[in-house]
Structures are given as C-alpha cells and as structure tokens.
Computed example of a mutant assay.
Amino acid sequence: MKTIKVNIVTPDGPVSETEADMVIAATETGEIGILPGHIAMVAPLQIGALRLKKDNSTVSVAVHGGFIEVRPDVVTVLAQNAELSTDIDIDRAKRAAKRAEEALQAKSDKLDAQLMELDLKRAITRINVYEMK
C-alpha cells in the first residue's frame, strides 16, 4: 500500500518524521482524513489529536494548534506544541487539568477564563492521546 510522508514540527524542532497510510487531523472546520495523493491544501488546526494510521496500528499525537500543509506526497504539521502519546507525562497532564478546572471555577475575568479553558483543553487532549496508545 502506498504511504505518505508525515513531518511534525514545532518551534522547538522536529517531533516526528514518519510515514503513514492515513493521517486524521482536527482542523478548525472539522476532522479531515488525508491519504496519499490528496490534493494540496493548508488548514488551521484545533487543539486535538492527530492520528497517524500505518498498517493495523495508530500513533496519536497531541497537537496544540498550528497548521497542516498537505501535498500529494507529504503532510507537514506546523504546531505550536506537539507531543507523541509515548512522551506524555500523564500525571502532569491530570494536575494541569485539575488546576485549570479550579481556576475556571474562580473565574476572575473573561480573558483569564478563556486562557484557563485553553489550558484545560490542552490537558484533556494530552490525557485522551495518552489513553489512545
């Protein structure tokens, strides 16, 4: 079966360079599936899981915003932050989710609440991606 090259990059450097049969990403307009030969496109990413399917296995990556660039032979993910499921510290993610939930309950102002909602979403994404492995 034909594969597509996948590069995941953050400001800190490359996170993963691999190949996949299919890439599934959460974009701002919904979830998309990308197969080899897909038309060229660029889309903004949501905070969510990026799934790389190869043979009968799936590797999940927690992606915290950014963009996905698709070309027929390569997918490049330019993320603000990205973590492979194997690199996630689950205890730290659970503590971060708890802190964000507590801060949301305190709700000091609208901006703080929005920032805490994003923190909570990132923590929940890490937990979900960790549990996918």
Rank of each mutant, 00 (worst) to 15 (best):
A20M: 01
R99H: 09
G37F: 10
R122A: 11
M116Q: 15
Q105S: 03
M116C: 14
E101Y: 03
E83K: 00
L104E: 15
P44N: 13
I34E: 11
N7E: 10
T86P: 01
D89R: 04
I39F: 05
K53P: 01
T10I: 04
N56W: 02
K110S: 15
Q46N: 11
L78P: 14
M22V: 08
L118T: 03
N81C: 14
I68P: 06
I90N: 00
I32H: 12
D112E: 14
T29M: 14
D12T: 13
V74A: 15
L52R: 04
L104M: 15
K5A: 10
E117W: 05
V77H: 08
D87V: 01
V129C: 07
L118M: 01
S57K: 00
K110H: 15
I24Y: 03
A96Y: 08
R51H: 04
D12H: 11
I4N: 09
T86I: 09
M1W: 08
A26K: 09
S85K: 00
P72A: 04
S108C: 08
D73H: 15
A106V: 15
G48A: 04
R92M: 06
T18R: 06
L35R: 09
Y130I: 06
T3Q: 11
D87S: 11
R92V: 02
I90K: 12
R126Y: 05
N128Y: 08
N7I: 12
D87A: 14
E28I: 09
H38C: 12
A100Q: 12
G37R: 13
M132Y: 04
T76L: 06
T27F: 03
S60H: 09
L111D: 14
E102P: 01
H38G: 02
A79E: 06
M22D: 07
A40V: 11
V75P: 12
K54M: 05
E101L: 05
F67V: 04
Q105W: 01
P72M: 06
A106W: 08
N56K: 02
E117F: 09
L120M: 09
V129M: 02
K121E: 10
P14S: 14
I34Y: 12
A79H: 03
